[in-house]
Design a binder for these strands. Structure first.
Lengths: 126, 126
DNA sequence: TATCGATATGAATAATTTTGCAAGTCGGTG
DNA sequence: CACCGACTTGCAAAATTATTCATATCGATA
């Protein structure tokens, strides 16, 4: 039972879910969508992030199934083999997360920094 | 690909972690600790929450291992068989989460309610 | 000092998730 | 009109997690 840290911190996650509490996507898929947007390819995005293509593909399908509309647009064929881009809805979701983090992150950090002081007054027993 | 919801929402989780990003405990264990505090028994707390004693016990050990100090105090024997209470540090952690949620929750809800309006302007394609 | 019931813990089993691989599909382009 | 490489998809294997069950330990108290 030895401490392997210097200070305790708070962390958090945000995600989009339905009004029936079915979680849909969060930071990870936001980054993935951003990478798809930048590379124009699911394969490239996945590889740049060190993810499994199989699993990522499956999860994207699940997300679209839950949302009820497509967020990526795929095409096959051509010298490039194919490519993937975001639908207008996919773009909006990326923009939404951009805004969430830019608005939310600073305020959370601010609140956290005050709270964490209390946290680090909890020490080992005498 | 049909909508099975009326509106999209945001949700979040908060947890304590080390400065090396090792997550330690969050809302679930907060509730568990609260139940232990109220019942004076790990078994009772676990059963009231519908959790597995084995797994809960294991996770509590892991939490203490990561923290570097004990958060619960157990005793065996007696007509009651034994009981479990929180250490002063355990109490402080519960109080910390009490404060986190009472301070954080209202603000988050406020921020979320504004952001979610944007979210629900994302619709199906025409 | 025998009893009782919660704490403590190993180990087998089941369930879930992740990973990996193979093979087929597609169509713009040279 | 053959080729190329990303998109698709099924399925088995591997890795993780969770659940269950059995059994031992402990000690205040009657």
């Amino acid at each position: 039972m030895s401490k392997n840290y210097h200070k305790l911190k708070l962390n958090y996650k945000i995600w989009i879910e339905t009004d029936l509490h079915v979680s849909i996507l969060g930071e990870g898929k936001w980054k993935l969508l951003t990478a798809i947007k930048e590379t124009g390819s699911l394969k490239a995005a996945v590889e740049s992030m060190g993810l499994s293509y199989r699993q990522t593909w499956t999860k994207l399908k699940e997300i679209e199934e839950k949302l009820g509309f497509p967020i990526i647009e795929k095409s096959r064929g051509g010298a490039e083999g194919g490519h993937t881009s975001l639908t207008p809805q996919g773009e909006k979701i990326v923009e939404f997360f951009d805004k969430v983090y830019s608005k939310f992150e600073p305020r959370v950090k601010d609140i956290f920094s005050k709270l964490v002081q209390d946290l680090n007054t909890i020490h080992k027993p005498n």
